[in-house]
Amino acid sequence: MNNKINLIIVCLLSLLICASAQAYAEIYVISHSGTTLSESDIKDVFLGSKQFSDSTKLVPVDNSGAQEEFVTSVLKMNARKYSTAWTKKSFRDGINPPAVKSGDTDVLNFVKNTPGAVGYVTSAPSGVNVLKKY
């Protein structure tokens, strides 16, 4: 009986921890190991204003699982403004918005293997540059 109660408590605690993690997800903005960027470049890269790091063309990618959190807490925008900003940018300057990857694994693999790639994930990554943790 005690085991069952313990199990229930553990389950409830796990749910609470998961819920907290969901509400306050950490965002790690990362770049390819050979790509040097500063923390202040992040917004410019994800809004298309900065397209190069030295001679390397930057390839920003969005993370579908963390996009809302990223847009809100890192870019300080909402979905409507982010979408409109990219439509205007694309319409005026002929550049395309970041491709949207399916999740952390997808983003991490892409950033690790693509020179100039910049992305963001929700858990501590390895093998890439961490530009900033939010």
Partner: peptide, 17 residues
């Protein structure tokens, strides 16, 4: 398996680039 698939996809994308 996902890791392998992701790596393969990423390699394909990198190769395309």
């Amino acid at each position: 398996i996902e890791g392998k698939v992701g790596t393969v996809e990423t390699r394909v994308q990198a190769a395309e680039v």
